[in-house]
Design a protein around this nucleic acid. Structure first.
Length: 475
RNA sequence: GUCCCCGUCGUCUAGGGGUCUAGGACACCGGGUUUUCAUCUCGGCAGCAGGGGUUCGAAUCCCCUCGGGGAUGCCA
């Protein structure tokens, strides 16, 4: 068994494509199949090497490995379609010679008109060039470059058993007429060479997005005309945005790279993407990769499109963050702390882990660490909007004044037992009205770890600075 | 227009004629823990697109409608 993932390098790795890659990867692991990467860079205008590099990089980050690809030739290469031109040329010649393809000399307008005509008469569109003889074609081709089209057989039934969609039946008359396989600039087209490459690379199972479902009959027809085998198919339902339209940038982050940057864990993304469209018998959703592989069954994937739930992904990511050991997760947080400009180099590992241990629970993604960690790492935390509002209240000012009075007589040892009880004793406040302003005053925000835990970690000196700051600003 | 695919809580899904007064998860709401928030924990809200059949019985089978998606000449 051999499966493949065939990205076209025209941009970043989209989350929808990543899902396809993930399903291929899981399937390969499950059945011990080879996983091939083929770069479909036939769109010369939009394909870039940078894009190819970043896509492969994102796949690696996700934890996807391949046995063959542009960087690993195992005898089925080249793995970039742009490097396989000679192969395609041979097959095109063969199709032309056997009468399965022809050169079309019609103008755009002509074709458009003929199609419209066929449509209104409710009959299949037949290209007016499809019956030109080879010599007629050769004579005409002196006038310039023209596209080559595949001669779609009339009224032929094409059917296949899709692993996900089930039995699918098409009639060749509904394909939309003879279609272009080689552009007028000589470049072969996706629907054409995908059949050749899948056959030559001995792909046995094509797992791809549902948007290719209605392309499948064309590809089968081509394989048949060429006498090539064609694979089994599994068409994955599409991933939609919250408005049920195809997932795009306006719905949120769609680039795998950005998920990485924001601090999503590859295991979580893999888990979420792998679980999309099906579920386990037990209902368990947090699945390690090994579980994913052993429990996965491609035919159990649902047939309908799924809305991408950013919130659920976050939740899932958060639960992965909680699963790691303190030491492991600390290492993962460090780059985000660094990037935010927080001073951690001078910190002992013990102190850093201490801070992480009391802040990690509020993190769903790695970059979430910045705010809570800042409570400990900054000298002063400028109160955010909510904290600012609260601190302007009279009772808050009362607390700031009181704190300011007490703090000079305290020190690192006594601050924990002295500060809050002291404020409580010297003011009328208790409960929420006591703790809320204190929290706002010393952390600059309304949420965070327990104050009793936070205070010793912040330390006497910074506490004093923060109280002084609030005294100046609010009293 | 034509052809193909799809339609269970807001979202992801379980369920394939009776065990469904439709189960789980995310989100949301409420209780408990935490002297706030978060974590954790307990509970609640909420759905079979609509209409016809078939059947003793339909979320489950059939048909129609509606809705969404895809393909239909130089994207993949």
């Amino acid at each position: 068994m051999r499966v493949r993932f065939a990205p076209s390098p025209t941009g970043y790795l989209h989350i929808g494509n990543a899902r396809t890659a993930v399903v291929n990867h899981i399937t390969a692991k499950k059945s011990g199949a080879d996983f091939i990467i083929r770069v479909e860079d036939t769109d010369k205008e939009r394909s870039t090497v940078e894009s190819e590099i970043s896509i492969l990089d994102d796949l690696r980050w996700l934890g996807i490995e391949w046995n063959e690809g542009p960087d690993k030739d195992k005898g089925h290469g080249p793995y970039r379609q742009s490097e396989r031109d000679e192969i395609y040329r041979e097959y095109t010649k063969r199709l032309l010679l056997t009468g399965h393809a022809f050169t079309c000399f019609c103008s755009n307008e002509q074709v458009e008109e003929d199609k419209k005509q066929a449509m209104t008469e409710n009959r299949p569109f037949l290209d007016r060039c499809r019956n030109l003889t080879l010599t007629e074609q050769e004579e005409l081709s002196f006038h310039g470059e023209y596209p080559v089209k595949f001669k779609v057989p009339v009224d032929e039934t094409i059917e296949f058993d899709d692993k996900i969609k089930g039995h699918v039946v098409f009639n060749s008359s509904n394909i939309g007429g003879d279609f272009i396989i080689v552009r007028s600039d000589g470049g072969p087209v996706y629907n054409y060479i995908v059949s050749i490459d899948d056959a030559l690379m001995e792909i046995t199972h094509v797992i791809r997005g549902e948007d290719h479902l209605s392309n499948t009959p064309k590809q089968i027809l081509i394989a048949k005309a060429l006498g090539l085998p064609f694979p089994e198919y599994a068409h994955l339902p599409l991933i939609l945005g919250s408005d049920k339209k195809k997932l795009s940038k306006r719905h949120g982050i769609t680039s795998v790279d950005l998920y990485r940057q924001e601090g999503y864990l590859p295991e979580a993304l893999m888990n979420y993407l792998g679980l999309l469209g099906w579920s386990t018998e037990s209902g368990e959703e947090i699945l390690e990769f090994d579980q994913l592989v052993s429990l996965f069954d491609i035919s159990s994937i649902g047939k309908s499109a799924a809305v991408f739930d950013f919130q659920k992904l976050k939740w899932m990511n958060g639960s992965y963050i909680k699963k790691y050991s303190l030491s492991e997760i600390t290492d993962m947080f460090i780059p985000y702390l660094d990037k935010a400009g927080l001073e951690i180099k001078s910190l002992s590992r013990e102190k850093l882990e201490n801070i992480i241990s009391i802040t990690r629970n509020s993190c769903e993604i790695l970059s979430d660490i910045i705010k809570p960690a800042g409570i400990f790492l900054n000298e002063i935390n400028i109160p955010d909007e909510e904290a600012d509002k609260l601190l302007k209240e009279d009772y808050s000012r009362d607390i700031i004044n009181t704190a300011s009075g007490i703090i000079p007589v305290l020190n690192d040892e006594t601050v924990l037992t002295g500060l809050i009880p002291g404020i409580k004793e010297n003011t009328e406040h208790k409960g929420k009205k006591l703790f809320h302003p204190i929290r706002a005053m010393i952390t600059g925000t309304l949420s965070g770890p327990d104050l009793d835990i936070a205070i010793p970690v912040i330390g006497y000196n910074n506490l004093k600075k923060r109280i002084d700051y609030c005294k100046q600003k609010y009293c």
